[in-house]
Design a protein around this nucleic acid. Sequence first.
DNA 1: TATATTAGCAACCGATTGGTTTCACAATTA
DNA 2: TAATTGTGAAACCAATCGGTTGCTAATATA
Lengths: 106, 106
Amino acid sequence: MRRDVFQAIADPTRRAIITLIAFQAMTPNAIADNFHTTRQAVSKHLRILTECALLKQEQQGREIYYSLDIAKMKEIDTWLAPFKKSWEIKFDQLDHVLSTLKKQRK
Amino acid sequence: MRRDVFQAIADPTRRAIITLIAFQAMTPNAIADNFHTTRQAVSKHLRILTECALLKQEQQGREIYYSLDIAKMKEIDTWLAPFKKSWEIKFDQLDHVLSTLKKQRK
DNA sequence: TATATTAGCAACCGATTGGTTTCACAATTA
DNA sequence: TAATTGTGAAACCAATCGGTTGCTAATATA
């Protein structure tokens, strides 16, 4: 089945899973503990996220650790990039102020 | 009906519409000319995009011009921002950090 | 060896999706 | 005024979605 990153992140539960495992790899059971659904439902979400390469699997004994593939997340940003310029121009002045503040802090 | 930006951009036709009208406002008929679907199908997409505030309408006589609300597009970038930091680090560096963390966990 | 744990798959279900055709209505134009 | 044009809404349809329950396979543990 053809999977699309944009279709994958359309579901709020899947976005929550992405945020959840962003820092550390987790097993399906551990992930499911964070949601009010069955383990099987979460398993389906993991399948969809894995099929579009947003998630990587690493088997450890009978456990499978799922982790986020940051490179694939960049795909969303790539699509967004052309539009991004528009709002960056709008907040250009603010950006300038912020970067100046950062430099001063360092 | 509850509309979500992420659900809105999940459809490839809707993403194409966004790209199409990014530069200039267009009428439903003009937009529909660019797709192999009926005008009514495009009208539905425009409704969904408008409901989640990605599109703005401007009536001119009997014509309605649709334009992109760039500010709403930023919402996607906002969700992406925390992850963005990860891929902005050089990838080999990130890989090193991650593998070190994994080894520490074991 | 027997039992418990971890995980994915299959079948089913109601709701939603994206599409179509048909229709209604307002604004332009002949 | 009558016909045309631009648009949205309604009704319908097959396909997909997110969820459930029940099952099987593999690994770990008593």
